[in-house]
Design a protein around this nucleic acid. Sequence first.
DNA 1: GAGTGGTCTAGACCACCCC
DNA 2: GGGTGGTCTAGACCACTCA
Lengths: 246, 246
Amino acid sequence: MTRRHQQIAEELRRAIADGTHPVGSELPSESELALAHGVSRGTLRQAFGTLQSEGLIGSRQGARRTVLSTTPSQSFTELRSFAQWARAGDRAPGGLVLRSHRAKATEAQAAQLQLVPGEMVLNVLRLRTLDGEPALLERTVYAGWAAAAVEALPDDCESVTQSLYETAGVVMSHGEHHLDAVAAGTTDARELGVRRGSPLLRVRRTTTTSEGRPVETSDDRYRPGSVVFTVRNSVQANPLVRTAAD
Amino acid sequence: MTRRHQQIAEELRRAIADGTHPVGSELPSESELALAHGVSRGTLRQAFGTLQSEGLIGSRQGARRTVLSTTPSQSFTELRSFAQWARAGDRAPGGLVLRSHRAKATEAQAAQLQLVPGEMVLNVLRLRTLDGEPALLERTVYAGWAAAAVEALPDDCESVTQSLYETAGVVMSHGEHHLDAVAAGTTDARELGVRRGSPLLRVRRTTTTSEGRPVETSDDRYRPGSVVFTVRNSVQANPLVRTAAD
DNA sequence: GAGTGGTCTAGACCACCCC
DNA sequence: GGGTGGTCTAGACCACTCA
């Protein structure tokens, strides 16, 4: 029993993808489509709104909507989970925990995870692979209340996000990502198989539940050529996408 | 004569920023606020939708909306214009054209700018500075129809985006950004004042008008420590933010 | 000036959360 | 079970685009 506006959005997405509405073309008007689908204009606008926030279509008052792009942006589901993202692109995700230990939160960590300094956290160093090739090195800090669930996972667990949901009911629904470039350190170089000092894309992120409670904060370093982050944005909305490098 | 939903959104934004609604707290219900502002629920939901897409608040069916963050995300206006972004952070933007020449579009360029191969384009190499320090090197390709307006600009023009709008009426309203890390080449190293091979954040972007007509495509390389890109995202929306490194 | 999207209203029902 | 957000309707007026 999916929502009507979702069905319509999906239909339009397909029509754009298969070339019925090529890039640059004008879409039918709201009233036309509302009539055709047998819904009110409001519902149709909701469907259009979804496509707009995905960067597929644009709009200006007074003129018909136009197609901006044919490739839909990633869902947040794919963004937050490395494994789900990899599988969506038909690549085999892998994971390996290299180190894992509990410790007291440093001041910086406590601030980021909204804990009191000295509270327990779980530090995990994890190597992620794509089709067996090292892709990135994660240095993740989990809040103490999530530590037990993470430690219970197997070392080679593919999808931590999904496992955390299944075993502990933790839903990660918001994230903040900071992207910049750094030189590979000794550990980075050894695990990722690159030379020390070579460029890495660094993504520092914090993920929180829907209530805004931080679950984890992480420093992820991507091997060049393995992953590119894509952001499609507009005056109206700006989604983030992680894309495999060509 | 601003829109009612914009006024309400602005009011809520302020109330969140000044601590009236701290992070993690619950906001009043839609009906309450609608009544208080003398608008219908629909209008109020529109205001909430804006704040949601800015990453300020989150929502779950059945529960009240909660405050996720106090700092509003950047507007696209600030994202697309380096100068506007810099000034918003109280830093002095600078620009200097190092090279500029017309050429026939390569196949790749033509594809990205939706031109026919061989059509004329304008290549510009531009150094951008923050408070006099080199921050990034831009290799920009402008579509031929925008070339004349760009060439007419002074070499040290601060804001190309704004000037293009003022002189040619070109409004850039959509962009696609790809982020990864690369090693500094000879030119990069010389102009940015770093060693060859040192890590740079690369942002490849294409900007289009509201009709989806590409205006420019660019390869921007940021000196480490000068700029960090931030993306705040959620199940509902994911805006991109460019942040000065600390 | 006809058509289009942007805004707004006043209702309604449902799914879900929490008490 | 009462309150909340999510969905949907059927109207209305306005600002804007374009022929």
